[in-house]
């Protein structure tokens, strides 16, 4: 089975009381997560740095390029900041050009002692620059592994546009992991998209839809620093899903497993 993975994120989930017993690997998972946390905050890695795992752990790094796609203001930059454990900007500044952000996510394979350090590089670009400069979109799509298709729960049109959005962004022949993310899920008071519609969308398109709240917090006791562990718990479901699908895609490509398409889980 391709899904022979135990995820670092599940350990966090268990700590916050949302334990998934069959994947529970307390002490181990915790150990790996300490490599992407410093004290209680997220560690930021420069391009010439790597998380250091204990020497007895045979860890491989698997790098992936993920394009974050969606119209201006939908929440691309906020989502990437949230995932990376950076502060989400409270005012909207249109992103200029391309901006990439690297995030590490340690994952332990379920049926072996192997740990895979997933290295996700998120590519985010502003819409204006994309229209004004020809080189930007091709650069984002060059050697792509996955695409996050964003819509906002507070913007009906962005949800309705998803089918076209997909057509514009990816061709079917490409081997690219596609994941839909609904942003601004915290704004449920103003939501324009119902739960039922999301369910229907998943069934029709056989694509997973993740709900995200790209808001700052919780904070550490100093009131200024983001709590890295709690922040990770909020994005773990998305990172796990990406890791799982990308790993599966690699195994299919390597002929290790049959290429069944990945239907939604849960």
């Amino acid at each position: 089975c391709a899904r022979a993975l135990v995820f670092g994120g599940n350990v966090i989930a268990s700590e916050t009381g949302l334990s998934c017993p069959d994947r529970y690997k307390s002490s181990k998972g915790k150990e790996y997560l300490t490599n992407i946390l410093r004290e209680k905050r997220r560690k930021i890695f420069g391009l010439i740095e790597r998380p250091v795992l204990p020497p007895q752990v045979a860890a491989d790094t698997a790098s992936y390029k993920i394009f974050v796609s969606g119209k201006s203001g939908v929440g691309k930059t906020a989502l990437v900041s949230k995932i990376a454990g950076l502060e989400v900007p409270c005012v909207h500044h249109e992103t200029t050009g391309i901006q990439t952000t690297v995030t590490y996510w340690p994952v332990k394979l379920r049926d072996s002692e192997r740990v895979i350090m997933f290295r996700f590089q998120f590519w985010d670009c502003g819409e204006a620059a994309l229209k004004k400069f020809d080189h930007i979109l091709p650069a984002c799509k060059e050697k792509l592994d996955a695409i996050l298709l964003l819509f906002s729960f507070t913007d009906r049109s962005s949800f309705d546009d998803l089918p076209n959005h997909m057509l514009r962004s990816v061709t079917d022949s490409e081997n690219i992991v596609k994941v839909v993310v609904g942003t601004k899920f915290d704004q449920f008071m103003h939501t324009d998209v119902t739960e039922k519609e999301v369910q229907e969308f998943q069934l029709t398109w056989l694509l997973p839809v993740f709900r995200m709240k790209s808001v700052n917090g919780p904070w550490l006791s100093d009131g200024r620093t983001l709590d890295g562990r709690a922040g990770l718990a909020e994005v773990a479901h998305l990172l796990n899903a990406l890791a799982e699908r990308l790993w599966h895609q690699d195994q299919v490509a390597a002929g290790l497993v049959a290429g069944t398409s990945y239907a939604q889980e849960n």
């Binding site: 391009l47 950076l86 901006q99 080189h135």
Partner: peptide, 10 residues
């Protein structure tokens, strides 16, 4: 600018 890993900025 907000810190990021790399950028291509016109």
């Amino acid at each position: 600018l907000a810190p990021c890993s790399s950028r291509d900025y016109p």
